[in-house]
């Protein structure tokens, strides 16, 4: 059974008298011990899904789902207190931008220590507890690859380089020993060596501690090497999801194919100095979403039926939503 199970998640944002479906029937599940990649262009709603899972969306936005559960418990009908407990113990989030996601007026050490759940801290008296808390903080910092702990524990977020900030976000997320780590584009703006370190760290944690990871990114190359399963998102709709190797070998949705084709590392037969194939146009803004399949206007295989939203179909554990998938001939 899936740990995190989301079915037909819809997010409606009302703007004046119009309602925009920022997320339209998104389905996503993360099994225990797997690394799930959530891929999509900027503006496809990846971060909205992350916010929806951790309950950080504004109350005015209408969130509905057929199913949104964590280990069988419904996240939407849960009380705030229970929801908070789930977020504290089981799910941890690494946000995109460390400089804004860390409190500028509190030292990094304090922010790391406040995330340690009380039951991890040993000791009777508060000074013993403080000492143990610091020990946990330091060992977590070493785990994510920050060596100079004395300097950085006392630093404020604006005093550290952004990759240290990002590693600190990871440390804060991991210190509670969560079961699921949601990494919202954690390697953004990092140089390749640091990026590799972070990715290796995630993979290692996944293997040694059976940590499930929901890896949100648009960096296909990084994702392809480490994740087991993948969900592709386009303009707030789930386009295709399934095992990484199946999707890589044989994408069924035209968008997934375009996405894979645009990355030269996935193409063995690419002739030298040829231009990379891309879809025409760009991702629509939320105010101008097409009806039906949102890829419609850009899709090379679009037909008349595409103005109706395709239902999701399933071949084994490979799910796609397209009227004219790539394995079927277009009439």
């Amino acid at each position: 059974m899936a740990m995190l199970d989301i079915k037909n998640l819809t997010l409606e944002i009302s703007e004046g008298d119009t309602t925009i479906k920022a997320l339209d029937k998104v389905s996503l599940s993360v099994n225990s011990g797997e690394i799930r990649a959530l891929v999509g262009e900027s503006g496809s709603g990846k971060s909205l899904i992350v916010s929806a899972i951790c309950g950080a969306l504004p109350a005015k936005w209408k969130l509905t789902a057929d199913r949104m559960s964590w280990n069988g418990e419904n996240l939407l009908s849960m009380s705030t207190q229970q929801r908070r407990e789930v977020m504290r113990r089981d799910i941890a989030v690494v946000f995109q931008n460390p400089q804004t996601s860390l409190d500028p007026s509190v030292t990094l050490g304090e922010q790391l220590e406040e995330s340690i759940p009380e039951e991890f801290v040993k000791g009777q008296w508060f000074w013993q507890r403080a000492k143990h808390r610091k020990k946990i903080a330091i060992s977590t910092m070493h785990k994510v690859g920050i060596k100079d702990h004395n300097t950085y524990l006392k630093s404020y977020p604006h005093q550290v380089p952004s990759d240290i900030g990002q590693k600190f976000m990871m440390a804060i997320a991991l210190v509670a020993q969560p079961k699921l780590l949601i990494a919202d584009d954690p390697t953004r703006g990092m140089e390749p060596t640091t990026k590799t370190q972070i990715l290796k760290l995630l993979t290692r944690l996944n293997q040694t501690r059976a940590l499930s990871v929901l890896f949100v990114s648009h960096d296909l190359l990084a994702i392809a090497s480490m994740s087991h399963t993948m969900t592709v998102l386009y303009a707030g709709q789930t386009v295709e999801s399934g095992k990484m190797k199946h999707i890589k070998k044989r994408p069924l949705h035209p968008y997934t194919k375009a996405l894979l084709d645009s990355a030269p590392s996935f193409r063995k037969d690419l002739p030298p100095k040829s231009s990379l194939p891309t879809l025409k146009g760009s991702i629509p803004t939320l105010q101008h979403l097409p009806i039906g399949c949102r890829l419609g206007p850009r899709c090379p295989r679009a037909q008349r039926e595409c103005v109706v939203t395709p239902s999701s179909r399933r071949i084994h554990d490979h799910i796609y939503s397209c009227h004219y998938p790539l394995h079927r001939e277009v009439k």
Binding site: S51, C54, G55, A56, R84, E85, V86, M87, R88, R89, A92, V93, F95, N97, T100, S101, L102, D103, P104, S105, V106, E110, E114, S115, I172, A173, A176
Partner: peptide
């Protein structure tokens, strides 16, 4: 409305903890 408050909330801190540790000073 700053992201670090959302981040603190997603870490499962209670409203009081968020208020005293992150809101008051900032």
């Amino acid at each position: 409305q700053r992201p670090y408050i959302a981040a603190a909330r997603s870490r499962g801190l209670s409203s009081w903890q968020i208020f005293f540790r992150h809101v008051i000073r900032n």
